[in-house]
């Protein structure tokens, strides 16, 4: 049995290492081939170049798509965070009948095939005679982002010491004053984290945008169009690398803030208890 344990203890870290390689394998090839002179992505590299990056700002269609994605992302992030705050606050602060069912419904887009959610929304929007536009993409993205916002916000709101708010109320603050001066400062990191996470999701989301966009493409739709042309691949890889770096930075900030929020609400609670 000790032999078995030894094998197990030795192989588990090795397996973990291999798994990480598997996870990062497709990610590392984006930057590598985006620097390649040749159009076809294969080894050995022909030579290193930055020309694919230099071409990016000179592609008007790309800039339009990037602008559209930015607008959609910001709108979706704000809306889903606001709706997420309402739900997270209600779930962590109040007990009411149907709480679990409602929570389940709000989280449902996470476990539904995205194509079915997208197609259903498309049917309703077309039936109502509305035009497809960036606005409809925002509506779809908010639906997809809310579960993530809710998760981030709930973890930020949990462990939040309710007695602080009660103390503030006892000391004569109005409900709004308590919210602004006690609640808000404690939950701000979680809110910013939720904004960043939903923005990143919206920026990368393809299926909803594919069905719900009108004539204006978002970045993933633009990339989808480019994938048909083999010659455009290095440019797409360069764009992908930039998006990867951007997402990585945003998410690192989000993660640091979420941790700070979790630590802060625990610490403050601890100091008072």
């Amino acid at each position: 049995m000790t032999a078995l344990r030894k094998i197990f203890a030795r192989w588990l870290p090795v397996y973990a290492g291999l798994y990480i390689v598997f996870l990062y394998l497709p990610v590392v090839f984006l930057p590598i081939f985006s620097l390649n002179t040749a159009v076809t992505p294969k080894f050995p590299l022909e030579g290193l170049t930055l020309k694919w990056y230099e071409e990016l700002p000179n592609t008007p269609a790309l800039l339009d798509a990037a602008w559209n994605s930015l607008v959609v992302g910001i709108a979706a992030a704000i809306l889903s965070t606001v709706l997420g705050i309402c739900a997270a606050r209600a779930i962590t602060r109040y007990r009411f009948p149907g709480r679990r069912t409602i929570n389940g419904l709000i989280m449902a887009p996470l476990v539904l095939p995205e194509i079915i959610v997208a197609v259903s929304m498309l049917l309703v929007i077309l039936q109502m005679g509305l035009d497809l536009s960036l606005m409809t993409v925002v509506l779809g993205h908010v639906l997809v982002c809310i579960p993530y916002s809710l998760t981030v916000l709930t973890s930020g709101f949990e462990g939040f010491d309710r007695s602080l708010e009660e103390a503030s109320a006892d000391l004569g603050e109005t409900a709004f004053g308590t919210f602004r001066r006690v609640t808000l400062p404690m939950v701000t990191p979680a809110i910013i984290s939720s904004l960043l996470v939903s923005f990143t999701i919206s920026l990368d989301e393809f299926i909803m945008a594919f069905f719900l966009t009108g004539t204006k493409p978002t970045l993933p739709i633009y990339i989808w169009g480019q994938l048909r042309f083999a010659a455009k691949l290095p440019g797409v890889l360069a764009l992908g690398t930039l998006l990867l770096v951007g997402s990585f930075l945003l998410l690192t900030i989000a993660e640091l803030l979420r941790r700070r929020a979790a630590r802060r609400s625990q610490n403050t609670g601890g100091a008072f208890a």
């Binding site: 497709p26 990368d204 393809f206 992908g240 998006l243 990867l244």
Partner: peptide, 15 residues
């Protein structure tokens, strides 16, 4: 573990 998941889905498939 979560970082690769934040890369654009299309580009991961492409990769």
């Amino acid at each position: 573990i979560t970082i690769p998941f934040w890369t654009s889905y299309l580009l991961r498939v492409m990769s």
